[in-house]
């Protein structure tokens, strides 16, 4: 009786600049899955210039954008939010970075023009865009999550659409291995990256609604960060699992 109120505090970085591929669905998903279990959710949107308090959030989300917007965000990450983000991730705060956000969480992004954007360096990886004539990596993806710390992993499904090729450095751990689709670079079979509780991925679609077990993994880690280790009860996931199964049947059709 009278268990303390459970809560999850989410920071959504650059919601108006970095929102190109249905990224809103990820926030809707986290919010909905928490509320279904009586967990209060507070979403703070942080745009350019606004500072991040590294202790005020349990989960930080950043989505993808076009190159033009990405340049502005890279500068803001470097000059305004970078230090606080690093501090948060080092302390175990959960972060999910999709597509362009994932690239900026790496060390370096080389644009198709050859211009270089300094990334945050949270992940030991770098990304290069091979040029305007290079084929984009576009299509449905099925990937196997790396098991971790008693967690079984399972499959991750989504859609990728990126010109940049991401190469993991020796310190980087892949998030998953592609079963179909291109993943990080279309060559080494890796998809995404992980460092502590920060996760990066190329998959949108939106990612979380049709990957409910991965969404719950993020929620559980975020709650545990502030000492809430209680179980997440099961909820009705019939439509979620049906969407996941349907996406498993899609091969990585690329054009």
């Amino acid at each position: 009786m009278n268990a303390p109120t459970r809560r999850l505090r989410i920071a959504h970085l650059y919601p108006r600049l970095m929102n190109i591929y249905g990224d809103r669905g990820n926030i809707l998903c986290l919010t909905r899955r928490c509320r279904a279990r009586g967990i209060d959710v507070e979403v703070t949107e942080l745009g350019l210039v606004e500072r991040l308090d590294p202790k005020a959030h349990d989960l930080i989300f950043i989505g993808g954008a076009q190159d033009r917007e990405q340049r502005r965000v890279a500068e803001d990450l470097r000059t305004v939010k970078g230090e606080a983000l690093r501090e948060a991730v080092e302390s175990g705060v959960v972060a999910l970075a999709v597509c362009g956000g994932y690239q900026l969480f790496g060390k370096l992004y080389r644009e198709s023009s050859g211009a270089e954007l300094q990334g945050l360096g949270l992940f030991d990886l770098w990304t290069e865009h091979p040029g305007p004539d290079a084929e984009r990596l576009v299509g449905n993806v099925v990937a196997e999550l790396e098991p971790d710390n008693g967690w079984r992993g399972g499959t991750l499904v989504g859609f990728e659409n990126h010109g940049g090729r991401t190469h993991l450095g020796p310190q980087a751990q892949p998030l998953a291995r592609v079963r179909s689709g291109a993943g990080n670079n279309g060559r080494d079979g890796t998809e995404g990256a992980r460092y502590k509780n920060a996760f990066g991925t190329y998959l949108h679609g939106s990612l979380l609604p049709k990957n409910p077990r991965f969404a719950d993994r993020l929620i559980a880690l975020a709650l545990a960060h502030h000492g809430d280790d209680r179980e997440l009860g099961t909820i009705d996931d019939r439509l979620e699992e049906a969407a996941h199964r349907a996406a498993l049947r899609l091969t990585g059709r690329r054009r």
Binding site: G22, G25, F159, S206
Partner: peptide, 12 residues
């Protein structure tokens, strides 16, 4: 192909 392979737009 004529619809777009990527359906993430329904979330927008």
């Amino acid at each position: 192909i004529a619809d777009g392979r990527d359906i993430s737009w329904i979330w927008d």
